[in-house]
Design a protein around this nucleic acid. Structure first.
Lengths: 226, 226
DNA sequence: CCGTGTGTGACACTGAGTTCCATCAGGACG
DNA sequence: CGTCCTGATGGAACTCAGTGTCACACACGG
């Protein structure tokens, strides 16, 4: 019963938003079409915006669970699979995701909210990355964790948007490529088998090239055995 | 004096938000303290939120102007200086920036808006990066431009937040370091034409250490000695 | 038959934001 | 000096999102 009420409301809302636009549609009209009262709407969703956006809670929890299993040796793989859960969710939503995308394109308030919502995922990746990078022991852990999280989310969103715009029929392949770009770098060979002992080394190149190479080699020698 | 009215309103608003919190403060109370009418408030700011946030327009324009002067050969420098304009703006705001930070910390709606506002800058960097990377001719220009913009904004924000939290007395030094970390053509960028100046190389070390070192050395050979 | 809980409707209320009109200053001009 | 224009302001009425409260209906087990 509760579920069907929510559904009727959501269907009515999406339909009306599509017909007249988001701002031009009042909650009054939505509840009228759904055949329930205004009270019921706000009990079910709390906010007009909430009709559009999915519940991130469970997805965040699933991602958190996946990331929690990552170790400093396998964290790149954990991140990749965590990001995959997000893409999977959107692809499963199908036309609902497309409708939402159309709305977020046209209504600034909804666009802002959509953007802000991605920060939840980014935060999750960042916190786990911070943990891993701390254990691996590198400089500027804060910054690198933040950059890693931002890059992963950005790369994911690029692929997602391409799919939402109908610009790709192979979102999963593009997703893997994007993750390869972000999580591996250009030189490495992508592959399903994630070797252990991976680490990220950052050096500044205003030193002579061979000196940099020496430092990289030295840094890698000191890396905990993979 | 339109300016003084705006100022009085902003001062009253910040004071009241500070005393009672944002949500607990009504526009009515703000205009009462400022000694103007409700109409004047909404004419001046349009929205309760707008009192808090600065006008991004002119800053965006200045950044755009700086980025417009960049060439594929000097674009890393242009990006760095573009990002510096943002930091400069916040530092110049002083205590206003701090008050705003306190508010955006505690009020979700304001936090969302703050986040969304950074997208304006990110978009600017992205579009120019797309142009430069296209001229340089590399693969996945879309993705790399997006990643570059996201990384620059993220790195900037890390430094900015540290300053807002009073965790650093040398924001400019940290800013330069952060830019050093980020501005390399993330994900490798287009390898051939490596720009002059400092650069960073990120590699994964699941290859033998000496092989990694060799690759780094090879990549750096093309770089003019810094 | 009675309590209890849950989903719902109805209504009043607050507050943000819009619209429209009235007012009042000051400068330009004849 | 008077008039006219303009731009900034005040004021009132309105819409609509969101909150809070109370009442009702229908289920459930005792």
């Amino acid at each position: 019963m509760a579920a069907s009420t929510r559904e009727r409301l959501a269907d009515a809302a999406f339909a009306l938003f599509d017909e007249q636009g988001y701002d031009a549609t009042t909650v009054e009209q939505v509840v009228e079409r759904a055949g329930v009262s205004r009270s019921t709407f706000f009990r079910a969703f709390g906010t007009k915006e909430d009709v559009i956006f999915p519940r991130h809670d469970d997805l965040l929890a699933r991602i958190g669970a996946r990331l929690a299993t990552g170790t400093p040796q396998t964290y790149l793989h954990a991140i990749r699979e965590g990001a995959a859960l997000v893409l999977e969710q959107y692809l499963a939503e199908g036309h609902v995701a497309l409708s939402r995308y159309r709305l977020t394109r046209s209504v600034p308030a909804l666009r802002d909210r959509e953007i802000a919502s991605t920060l939840g995922y980014q935060r999750l990746f960042r916190e786990h990355a911070r943990r891993w990078l701390t254990e691996l022991g590198g400089p500027d852990v804060e910054l690198h964790a933040e950059l890693l999280a931002a890059s992963v989310v950005t790369a994911h969103n690029v692929v997602l948007r391409r799919w939402l715009r109908g610009e790709t029929a192979e979102p999963w392949r593009e997703f893997e490529d994007a993750m390869d770009t972000v999580l591996v770098g250009p030189g490495g060979g992508p592959g399903p088998s994630r070797p252990t002992g991976s680490a990220v080394v950052v050096v500044r190149s205003d030193l002579p090239a061979d000196e940099v190479a020496a430092r990289v080699a030295a840094a890698l020698e000191g890396t905990p055995p993979g």
